[in-house]
């Protein structure tokens, strides 16, 4: 992956920066340039909480090659308290024990390595909350 593509996403991937529309208060992750509800074009930045609830999940058994060392791995969509939803991998879990509604904690992880020579991509994964 060309580095500019990774670099540009850092605020939302590294710091979980989301946007809230100044006009109507609608929240967005990832941030947008125009509000889909009211057309507002000004946003405040805020940071997502690091906990959410599992809405749905699957276990990927035939992944793209860059994820093959992790297979089988779980992926899911979590919902934060403020209503925003996010997709990500569920790491460090027993794939047979996941449950819809389970509490998840976000943890900073390496997502892709671009073979052995490219720029490393980091972002958050979900971990079943255990402490």
């Amino acid at each position: 992956m060309f580095p500019s593509r990774i670099w540009r996403e850092m605020p939302q991937r590294y710091r979980l920066e989301a946007a809230v529309c100044k006009k109507c208060g609608k929240r967005y992750y990832p941030p947008r340039l125009v509000c889909a509800e009211c057309g507002g074009r000004q946003f405040d930045t805020y940071v997502l909480p690091e906990e959410g609830k599992l809405l749905t999940f699957t276990v990927i058994r035939t992944p793209a090659s860059q994820f093959s060392d992790l297979a089988p791995y779980a992926m899911g969509i979590i919902k934060f308290d403020d209503g925003l939803q996010m997709m990500g991998q569920i790491a460090d879990c027993d794939i047979d024990k996941l449950k819809i509604g389970q509490k998840m904690r976000l943890e900073f992880r390496k997502i892709q390595t671009d073979d052995t020579h490219g720029v490393l991509s980091y972002a958050y994964k979900f971990i079943p909350k255990w402490y």
């Binding site: 593509r5 996403e9 990832p30 809405l55 749905t56 999940f57 699957t58 276990v59 990927i60 035939t62 992944p63 793209a64 994820f67 992790l70 791995y73 992926m75 899911g76 969509i77 996010m86 997709m87 990500g88 991998q89 819809i100 997502i111 892709q112 991509s121 972002a123 994964k125």
Partner: peptide, 24 residues
Amino acid sequence: QDYEVFHGVTFPGLYAMMARAYMK
């Protein structure tokens, strides 16, 4: 690409998430 595929989802994975939610 940036917020689903980046994290490792495949097409069966996306529909599987819908299936899980629907079946529950």
